[in-house]
Amino acid sequence: MRHFLKDDDLTRDEQLALIASARRLKADRFARQPLAGPKSVAVIFEKESTRTRMSFQVGIAELGGNPVVVDAKNSHLSRGETIEDTARVLSRYVDAIVIRTFGDDRINALAKASGVPVVNALTDGYHPCQLLADLLTIAEEFGEVAGRTIAYVGDAANNMSHSYLLAGALAGAHVRVAGPSGYRPDPAIVERANVLAAASGGSAVVAADAPAAVDGADVVATDTWVSMGQNDREQRLSDLEDYRLDAALLSRAARHAIVLHCLPAHRGEEITDEVIDGPRSRVFDQAENRLHAQKALLAWLMNPDMESTFPDGAAT
């Protein structure tokens, strides 16, 4: 049994196979139903969601499974039942658990007590399903991810920055993240990304500023500056002002560069309308790719024999 709690829970070969499988599923969405039976998947939301909720619910159904969507506010989780007890019970009902939650300690406790695979649909520390979708989007654009330079600018202390460092380094990309003082990634994650990069031929650096990160990059990404539960909005907007992804900053990237944003976007704050709606934006392709990447992930976690799940070559 495997869990997917953070980006480097995969090997590089597994990451490549999942991206390949996602491309095959995207090309023919209804060709395979490896969760037919159906297998049931609990999808728990302790944080609000649009894309995560829809992409998992639709994706599980398209795989032939039964999505059981749980709003934590309407469950006993909101009344203090432990995450471990929840895991032990759900493991007797369903074949996998997906959760969008807060601290990583919470999902780690869930996974430790669970008898079925657990998937991180977002925690405070990581957003690994989003990065599978982002790598799929980059692979569609450039053929492969390895060797490409990915720049992430803005709040680099958040889950997206951490996942770009880990997933990008695992894929053999050159990842640069940039944020002002107080908004820089966990040094332990940068260190882990460098270990992964040493094996893959990639790199992972914390750039001096936004222009240094973006110069010559193939991919430029950002994320909202004010996430759920953060109450220091005005201070954050002031601190991050120089990291806005606008036309001037994007002009420093390669001419063929694409723009990514995991959404929802606060237009005019971390990204301008001109950029998110411009010809280099792949933001809505990226959003769609959550569906296809997560379908590939669930199919594999619930049937680790990738060649059996996708016998027509999707894993190659």
Rank of each mutant, 00 (worst) to 15 (best):
H3A: 06
L5I: 14
L10Q: 03
E14G: 09
Q15S: 08
L16H: 03
L16G: 01
A17H: 09
I19T: 13
A27S: 10
A27E: 06
D28Y: 00
R29G: 08
R29K: 15
Q33T: 15
P34E: 14
L35N: 02
I44G: 02
E48W: 00
E48P: 00
T50A: 08
R53M: 06
F56L: 09
V58W: 05
I60D: 03
E62W: 14
N74D: 09
L77E: 00
G80K: 10
E81M: 09
E81N: 05
D85Y: 04
A87H: 02
A96W: 05
I97T: 12
V98W: 03
I99G: 00
T101H: 06
R106S: 02
S114V: 09
A121H: 00
T123K: 03
T123Q: 01
D124L: 11
C129A: 07
L131P: 01
D134Q: 03
L135W: 01
E144P: 02
R148D: 01
A151H: 04
A156G: 00
Y164L: 15
L165S: 13
G179D: 02
P180W: 13
Y183R: 15
A188V: 13
I189Q: 01
I189F: 12
A199L: 12
S203V: 09
V206D: 05
A207K: 04
A210Y: 07
P211F: 10
D215I: 04
T222Q: 08
S227R: 07
D232C: 05
R233W: 00
Q235A: 14
D242T: 06
D246S: 12
S251I: 13
S251P: 04
S251H: 09
H261W: 08
C262I: 11
P264W: 05
H266G: 10
G268F: 13
G268M: 11
I276V: 14
D277W: 10
G278C: 11
G278K: 12
P279R: 10
R280S: 11
R290F: 08
A293C: 09
K295E: 04
N303C: 07
P304Q: 13
D305S: 14
M306N: 04
P311C: 14
P311V: 15
G313E: 12
A315S: 15
